[in-house]
Amino acid sequence: MMHVKEHDLSKNSELIAFRLGGQEFCVDIMSVRDIRGWTPTTPLPHSPGYVKGVINLRGSVLPVIDLAARLGFRSTEPTARHVIIVTQVGNQSVGLLVDAVSDILTINADTIQPTPDVASELARAFMKGVLAIEGRMISLIGLDSVLQSTRENSGFLN
């Protein structure tokens, strides 16, 4: 499959910020296709714990990833108030389960700071950097690595 690189953040990029376990994260808005409420998933056999299962997104089968579990936090017990952010990188679509969408941010690429060393290795693997906005710290998630690792860990490969 053709692997298209994630949209490069340019001078003035828009990001979607969301909450996850009391922290704030964001992804590039250009990769977001849809935001929808939680719907029960169909679990997949032999899938890693952070894969919640698959849902029907307008006729195609969309895997949903519990982003909290993926980042090494406690896994989410989804309720009707949780949100799935449908993202796409290249030809692959994945839904990210998050607590709530909080904001749309317009930022300058220069304001992205490197991820502090204190973050866990797992978290650092998926973070591209952090943003300081109005006294909040928002971590920028690199979808490339999230999607890539999901594909590689898609359970029992023969």
Binding site: P45, V54, G59, V61, Q92, T150, R151, G155, L157, N158
Partner: peptide, 16 residues
């Protein structure tokens, strides 16, 4: 429906 498009091959599952 293909499962491989967005996810990957799963043992014991032919498609969705």
């Amino acid at each position: 429906k293909s499962l491989e498009t967005n996810y990957g091959q799963v043992f014991g599952v032919a498609a969705a």
